[in-house]
Simulated scan of single mutants.
Amino acid sequence: MYWQGELQGGILLRRYKRFLADVVLDSGEEVTVHCPNTGAMTGCDVPGSRVWMSVSANPKRKYSMTWELLETATGANVCIHSALANDLVDEALQAGGISALAAYPNWQREKKLASGSRIDFYAPAAGELPECYVEVKSVTLDCGGGLGAFPDAVSKRASRHIEDLLELRRQGARVVLLFAVLHEGIQRVMPAAHIDPVYTRTLQAAFGTGLEVIAYRAEITLEQMVLTAPLTVEI
């Protein structure tokens, strides 16, 4: 995916109220920008970090700029706009870029289940392939040494999504958890047991009963972002 227009650079002053951040632009102007991330953003909201924002042409927006990227102290690019993970996965699925799922010709987004829940992606059965459900999680938590983890805060919702996938598995479907790693410094992924032990236990149990778990890292530049590299997942 390409960014809409040229990204504007600056230095992060602070993030607050979850959805807001103050930034000093390269021009020297101090502005408040929208922060499109509801998570803890551990390690990704450090004051003094180099950041980049997109600019909306919508005159009705209170804050015209949206924080998209930051550069870590080690020079790695990170996308903090967590909702873009599904857009990246959508592009990769449609292009056959995720090898484990490339045999499915048709993908739908936001598949509604009988329970009322929604799963991020669905592919109907194709030939000998069973129908397939894919839930996507964005990973930006860097634990050091190239290790990334999910989640970055306790998430009952993430555990519930795994339980939804397990129920679909019991009904005969193929179920996949896909970690979209939006941090270029991460080389492998694991559940964050030190943050959410319940999620970790839920994931480990599901993995033992048929849940597939895969991870892909994004290549991130000031022009575009694309999922490219499969990573090892340590369950």
Rank of each mutant, 00 (worst) to 15 (best):
N58W: 06
R61E: 15
L25G: 07
R18M: 07
V55D: 15
D45H: 00
V23R: 05
V33N: 05
C44F: 01
P59R: 15
T38N: 14
N58Y: 06
G43H: 12
S49M: 09
C35P: 01
M53K: 04
M41C: 07
G28Q: 06
V89K: 05
V51Q: 04
F19P: 00
I80L: 15
N37K: 05
L20S: 03
N37W: 02
V31S: 03
L20E: 05
G28R: 04
L20I: 04
D87Y: 06
V24Y: 01
K17W: 01
V33S: 08
M65Q: 15
E71V: 11
T74I: 04
E29R: 08
V23P: 01
E30A: 09
P36Y: 09
T38I: 08
E29V: 09
L84G: 03
N58R: 14
M53T: 10
I80C: 08
G48V: 05
P59H: 15
G48L: 07
S56M: 13
H81W: 14
E30R: 12
G28L: 03
A83W: 02
L20Y: 03
G43V: 06
E30K: 11
S54I: 12
W67N: 05
T32W: 02
I80E: 10
H81I: 11
P59M: 15
A57T: 11
L84D: 13
L69Y: 07
V78G: 03
S82N: 09
H81Q: 13
S56V: 07
A73E: 02
D26Y: 12
D87F: 03
C35N: 08
V33W: 06
R61I: 11
F19H: 09
H34T: 15
F19I: 12
N37L: 05
R50T: 03
G75M: 10
I80T: 13
C35E: 08
P47H: 03
A85L: 06
C44E: 03
M65N: 13
S56R: 13
C79P: 00
M53H: 06
A57M: 11
S54H: 11
A85V: 04
N86I: 06
V55M: 14
P36G: 09
A85F: 01
N58S: 15
N77Y: 15
G43T: 05
I80S: 07
N77V: 04
P59A: 15
M53V: 08
R50H: 05
D45Q: 08
E71N: 05
K62D: 15
D22C: 01
V33D: 07
E29M: 09
T38L: 14
Y63Q: 13
F19T: 13
V51E: 06
E30W: 00
E30F: 00
N86D: 14
W67F: 11
L70E: 01
A73W: 00
V89L: 09
T42N: 13
Y63M: 13
